[in-house]
Amino acid sequence: MTATQANTGQHRQPVHPGTPPAHPVLRFWRSAVGKKWIMAVTGIMLLGFVFAHMVGNLKIYLGAGPLNTYAEWLRNLGEPALPRTVLLWIMRIGLIGAFFLHIVSAAQLTRMNQRARPSKYQSPRDYAAASFASRTMRWTGVIVGLYLIFHLMDLTWGNANPRYVRGDTYENVIHSFKRVPVAIVYILANIALAIHIFHGAWSMFQSLGLNNPKWNRARRTFAMGFATLIGVVNISFPLMVVTGVVK
């Protein structure tokens, strides 16, 4: 009889059975701490993307020329060392990979957490620290993910935008946002994105283990500032188009 079995009359079987694989990478991937690390690293990549995307899009306020020039520059990035759009595609593949790992990790951790508490509390919880943002990560994540598909169909592939003209980024954006329901979808999705970023940008330090009590307050401020910046700027685009400020 092992100590574990003898321990109580209770079941002491693992909630999540199985043995870790031998290879360190697989072992790392299997563990929740490893997955959270991966989520943090991919999260940083995605934050970088969101930030750069936002910075690029700000050129909408400079007019059609600069925005389209910027879009063209992106395609030419890496020339002449690399052929046109190759670097852009490398970045895109990297981003797709980051999204994929971020989402798969999140889904697997969610399942793990559901199994870890099969019967819920039967009375309302009174949270002392868990914020709305932290508790809704999986929902804001799903919203942002769905929105992303629409966003690509709308402005990259064009199949959700009847007046899509390949290459004319500025006009595509204006035409898209002029549709009020689309503008509303964009605004709501970016609120979700900001909320998601608020918890993510704070939480990633924790997951990576990059913490120092001296900077704990600064981390909160950074997360709040970053999320607000992304949210406000991104929401401003549809808002300005719908209100006719940007034509």
Binding site: K36, A116, S134, R135, Q206, P213
Partner: peptide
């Protein structure tokens, strides 16, 4: 991880801890 869920940095544990142990240790 055989028995419990994963940490997603809610910070609720620190608040509930009767000894007020910091989540800095989690990091």
């Amino acid at each position: 991880e055989k028995y419990f869920g994963s940490c997603t940095n809610h910070g609720e544990c620190e608040q509930a801890c009767p000894k007020e142990i910091s989540i800095d240790f989690i990091a």
